[in-house]
Design a binder for these strands. Sequence first.
DNA 1: AAACATCGCTAACATTCGTTAGTATATTAT
DNA 2: ATAATATACTAACGAATGTTAGCGATGTTT
Lengths: 197, 197
Amino acid sequence: MARIKTENNLTRKEVIVSKAATLFREKGFKAASMRDLAEAVGVEAASLYNHIKSKTEILHELCFSVANRFLHKIDEVEAEQTSAIDKIEKLLRFHINEMIHHYEEVYVSDREWKHLSDPYLSNFQNQRRIYRKRFAAIIEVGIADHQIKKIDAATAVLIMLHAISGIESWHRSTQKITAEELEENMISILVGGLVNR
Amino acid sequence: MARIKTENNLTRKEVIVSKAATLFREKGFKAASMRDLAEAVGVEAASLYNHIKSKTEILHELCFSVANRFLHKIDEVEAEQTSAIDKIEKLLRFHINEMIHHYEEVYVSDREWKHLSDPYLSNFQNQRRIYRKRFAAIIEVGIADHQIKKIDAATAVLIMLHAISGIESWHRSTQKITAEELEENMISILVGGLVNR
DNA sequence: AAACATCGCTAACATTCGTTAGTATATTAT
DNA sequence: ATAATATACTAACGAATGTTAGCGATGTTT
């Protein structure tokens, strides 16, 4: 049997996690059964356990791989020598593109993390809280610079992040605008809502 | 036994549905069991069925009571003789206040409607689609009037509605700004993101 | 070729789930 | 008081769940 990689250059485990992302998005973590997943992979349910430790482990992997990408990005953006508005726009564009191109994973990470179990749960919540604080800090710099209007930074963050999760509806919509148009529209509205004028 | 009302002026069924809303929000529809609900109500699981037909019926009631409130509101707003921006602001303020004051129900209706079963599921999806189209139509009037900048109306709707669902985080936050401040901040950012200038 | 690791299968497990049946008790209406 | 209604209980059901044990076949390494 294939030892490391299948024809698609993915390990069996990666295939399982990827199919799980789709399934978890469609039905929710709790409602998606291991037998559903097995069928999607083309295998019996028990066979999944040759590759993964548990159903929850799949959720861990999804949630933390997404979280890590965002943390890495905010590291990068914070280090740049640009204006607060520039940084925010870069973060927003990253969020938008992640939501467009890694829809299933990002969506699942966003909506199903509650089903993580400790210590992963607290860990995830912490990372999330810290990420939002760092995002808010950038906004506060923008407010101090009078680039951004006087608003509650935490509220602004919460609006931005949740607004982007609306891309879910775009994915499910039948008559879509293009991804580029979507990105520009979102940036126009979201950044436009922040700037002083 | 109490025939119609308990001491709180609520029927037993209303108590059950209300406790269910809290539970469904906390754990998700699938993960919240009838035994959990029974415990919250202070009764055995089987006893719930003297008041409700099924677990799904509770979800129906929650989802459609919320949906009906929004449909009623948009009826009202559409009939007014005001500008598009005025109408949008009124709708947004209604959404915000619903999310603040009927948190559990609105949140559950928003996130758990997928677990409805047909014909209720299709029905709900239809209402939702129609509501968004009517909202988008108002935005398009604003664009035609040059009150609102040239954006994709559907995208704008999706941003507005999802942004407001972020109030969830406000509810869970420990150091909250007041509800009034939250409302004004959200309106400032969201309406500010739409208007031409 | 022998030893070993990989990986899919069948069968089964203990739990938990939503729900029903049947019964007893308390309240309201006549 | 008596009948009717509402509502709580215990017990149990069949179905679905995540997961484990054990086996056999296939591939890799020596």
